[in-house]
Structures are given as C-alpha cells and as structure tokens.
C-alpha cells in the first residue's frame, strides 16, 4: 500500500482545497520573505561597525518612547487587509466544503471507526471492513461515527476529513473524478493500533 504526494487531483473537494491552500501559501511566502528580508537587511545595514546612529541606551535612564503612530497604523492596516483577504476566501471554501452539493443521485456510506479499522455500511446494508468502493463522478457522502474512541477519518488524496466521535455523526462528501485506489487513514491517536488503522477507497 503506497500513496504519495498528490500529482493529479482525484476530484473534489481536493481541487478547491488546493486553490485555497495555494492562496495561503503564496501570500504567506510573500509576506514571510519580505518581513524576514527586511529584518536581516536592517540588522546588517545598521550593525555597530558601520552605523552612524547614536547610542541612546544609558544605564540607569529609562529610555523614552520611540514610535511612529502612522507606521504602526500601516502595520495594523496591512496585516488586517491580508488576513481579511484570506478569511473571506476561506469562508467561501468552508461553506462549499461543509455543505453537501445538491444532486439527484447521492451515494451514501456510513463509516464506523473502531480500534483499529474502518467498517463501511453501504446503502443496501452490506458491511465491509477495510475497503470501500464508490462510483466515479457522483457525490459520495460519508456519515462518520466511532464505536469506541476518538478517531479521525481522513481521505488523504481528497484533502478532507472529519473526526469520528462515539455517539455522534459527522458528515463529509467527495466527488471523485479519477478512477483509482486511494488511502483512508486515522489521523487522531487512538491507541497502539493507530498507525495501522488504514483502509482503501476504490473509485470505479
């Protein structure tokens, strides 16, 4: 059983997830590089051996305020704008991911996590452990619960997942567009069999 970095997107919501992730990543990379770059530049430019600036720290004297309210407001404004952008797109995607799209034909599977494996119950009542087969190009809904402890049902390649809680149901959906075999794994520590709590998702 192997799976690797996702080279091709197997369906939704992975595609949308990547668009959001890429936005966060590019803005984060940009902001991070500018800020760290600025820090290192200042440190180098004003190092003591070349700096012409005065020494304003005197032992026994409480230093005065050195600030510039305009610049502080710029800091405040810039960070707010960046985070507002991220948050708005995130809310859109969250609403999309958390609400099962309307469709006539939904394939619904009940998932029971247990120590240590996954049981799948098909609409016709068939129970299978370890592998679930779902149709391509259809909305697939997983109703997730746990028979014992906290688990997390994770569809790795589809970039979605939800906690499996005893006594409650959690719902996630996918829409596979590529046939193939994908990995399901538990992502919440659930005891000594945690690492081996894997199952297969087969899209046909």
């Amino acid at each position: 059983m192997t799976h690797g970095m996702v080279l091709q997107i197997p369906g939704e919501p992975a595609g949308t997830w990547y668009s959001l992730f890429n936005l966060y990543f590019s803005l984060g990379l940009l902001v991070g590089s500018v800020v760290v770059g600025m820090l290192l530049y200042f440190v180098w430019k004003y190092r003591e051996s070349v700096s012409n600036e005065s020494d304003d720290i005197k032992p026994g004297v409480v230093p005065g305020e050195r600030s510039n309210i305009k610049l502080i407001m710029v800091f405040f404004g810039l960070t707010s704008i960046i985070l507002f952008t991220l948050a708005s797109y995130s809310i859109l995607v969250t609403n999309y991911v958390e609400k099962v799209p309307k469709a006539d034909d939904i394939f619904e599977v009940t998932v029971q996590g247990f120590q240590w494996g996954w049981r799948f119950i098909y609409p016709n009542g068939t129970e299978v452990v370890g592998e679930v087969v779902v149709p391509k190009d259809k909305i697939v809904v997983f109703r997730i619960t746990s028979m014992d402890v906290f688990h997390k049902f994770q569809l790795i390649e589809f970039r979605t997942g939800a906690d499996a809680l005893p006594g409650a149901f959690n719902v996630i959906w996918i829409k596979p567009t590529q046939a193939g075999t994908y990995t399901i794994q538990c992502y919440e520590l659930c005891g000594i069999g945690h690492s081996l709590m894997v199952a297969t998702l087969r899209v046909v």
Partner: peptide, 8 residues
Amino acid sequence: SAVCQVEI
C-alpha cells in the same frame, strides 16, 4: 455540544 448534522 451537538455535532452538526450537515443537510443532505
């Protein structure tokens, strides 16, 4: 407390 039930 209650786990959300997504509408289907």
